[in-house]
Amino acid sequence: MVRETMKATETYRQFARYYDGYVQRFTYDLAMYGAFCQPEHRILEVGCGTGRVLRYLLERGCRITGIDISEEMLEIARQRLESFETAGQLSLCCHDLLTQPFTGVFDRVLVTFYTFNYFLNAPERFFSNLRSVLADNAALMIDLFVPTARAASEAEAEWHQQAFEMEGRQILMKDRRYISHNLETRTQIYQESGQMTEITTTRRYFSPSEMCELLLTAGFEQIGFSTSYDPGAFTTDLPSEPLRTHFVVKALTSSREK
Rank of each mutant, 00 (worst) to 15 (best):
A77W: 02
T9R: 02
A152V: 12
H246N: 14
L140Y: 06
M173D: 01
R63N: 09
E124Y: 07
E72Q: 09
L30W: 03
Y190A: 12
E154W: 01
D237G: 01
A135L: 03
F116T: 00
T50G: 04
T11M: 14
E221M: 08
T236G: 10
A233F: 06
C37Y: 02
R169F: 11
Y22P: 04
A139R: 13
P208D: 01
Q222V: 07
F36C: 10
C37H: 05
R176D: 07
E10W: 11
R256P: 01
L30K: 09
R203G: 03
E184H: 03
V53W: 07
S91I: 10
Y205P: 03
G224R: 03
E257H: 14
R52T: 04
F206W: 08
V111K: 04
E85Q: 11
S228Y: 13
A8I: 10
R150D: 15
R63D: 02
R203C: 01
G219S: 12
L92I: 07
I223S: 01
I67S: 00
F225W: 04
A139K: 11
K174F: 01
G49V: 06
E198P: 06
T202L: 11
S209W: 10
F26A: 15
L90F: 10
L74H: 05
E82T: 03
A233H: 11
I189D: 07
Y19H: 08
H246W: 10
V23N: 05
P39F: 03
R3A: 13
E165T: 14
Y205G: 00
L130T: 01
P208S: 08
R256I: 14
E165I: 13
M6V: 14
R256H: 15
A163I: 08
S132E: 15
E213Y: 12
M211Y: 11
D237N: 11
Y178W: 12
F15M: 14
R60F: 09
N121I: 08
E72S: 04
F234E: 07
E158V: 15
A163W: 04
G21K: 04
E221H: 14
F15T: 00
L252G: 02
Y18C: 05
V109I: 15
L74I: 14
T201I: 15
G61N: 14
P123G: 11
H160N: 12
F102I: 00
H160G: 12
R203P: 05
Y118I: 02
L215T: 03
E257D: 13
S207R: 04
V53Y: 07
L134S: 02
A139W: 00
T27A: 13
G224Q: 05
F126W: 06
M166G: 02
S128D: 11
Q89Y: 09
